[in-house]
Design a protein around this nucleic acid. Structure first.
Lengths: 160, 160
DNA sequence: ACTCAATGACTGACTCAGCAACTATAGTCA
DNA sequence: TGACTATAGTTGCTGAGTCAGTCATTGAGT
């Protein structure tokens, strides 16, 4: 039982993930961002008016709402986004990407894309990549809680 | 640039990972284990004499050595493993899986395997799974620092 | 309008992980 | 043997995240 092929399989999956995540993290750090912070900026930048309700942000990232409160605190302190009251519901607030935040993102993205090429898509033939993505999509769709609240998050197909 | 297909691609990958990890975590919790703790027990159980040097454990998990010290502290407190001095090097110590630790693992594994089936391997045809694993292996091998110190960790091919 | 459950966000206390500093032992070279 | 460097592991401090609890606001039922 302890060396079931299924264990080898997720092991592979998890190690590939960990390796990629570590490399990405190092690059984010060069631009003063943590992985979550990058993801938050990313999600905001892809949302209408570059803003998102705290709750939606929480649903899209794998953070709790209180986790979101704190990341947004940090990013607001650094001027990369700002909070804005929701006019239609006085309980709610939006996190709104600032110009500085958008600039930071634009400055970070090229390197990020390069890394993706180098360590992910570039490791595979177009055909392999295609198959991989199809498989991943199946798994994601099965496993995915519904993290598309409020916008089509940065990892979702355009048509979703 | 902000909706480059490459971003969609890793997004897919990362979301699939996150979803799987979350489900696994919930099941581990039912058996009083955190994901790291499970991994530590797993690695130990697959190592000769069910023991591993602290350093090797650190290399195999994605923890720092101080991180390992603390997980081992917790697991030792719970009686799932114990430390044992290394006879040939008085600086070193082994983490040794106890019977209780092994039992806990055996109690946790079936449910874990079921989840893997349900959400990972079972989502794909044998052919798709095969392609997926081949692709993941490429990526893992490219990206992987060399985390096989001291043993062939639970995510590595038997022949490695 | 009044009550009451539900919701959005924030806070305090706690856990977990990392880094850097530290201790003890090993190993090397004279 | 003595000095110096490298290595194994632990510890203090800090940052990041969670959970449970709080407060204000909303919306539904009467």
């Amino acid at each position: 039982m302890p060396d079931d092929p299924r264990l080898t399989a997720i092991g592979l999956f998890f190690e590939a993930y960990t390796g990629l995540a570590a490399r990405f993290a190092r690059q984010f750090e060069e631009h003063g961002l943590s992985p979550v912070e990058f993801e938050v900026l990313m999600r905001l930048s892809r949302s209408p008016s570059r803003q998102l309700r705290m709750t939606d942000l929480a649903a899209q990232t794998s953070l709790s709402t209180s986790g979101v409160t704190r990341v947004v605190d940090r990013l607001e302190r650094d001027g990369l986004l700002c909070r804005q009251a929701c006019p239609s519901d006085r309980r709610g607030s939006f996190a709104v990407l600032t110009e500085a935040g958008f600039a930071r993102l634009k400055e970070t993205l090229p390197g990020h894309l390069r890394l993706i090429d180098e360590w992910f898509t570039g490791q595979l033939t177009p055909d392999e990549l295609d198959n991989l993505l199809r498989a991943l999509r199946k798994i994601r769709d099965a496993v995915h809680p519904g993290a598309t609240a409020g916008s089509s998050g940065y990892a979702h197909e355009p048509a979703e």
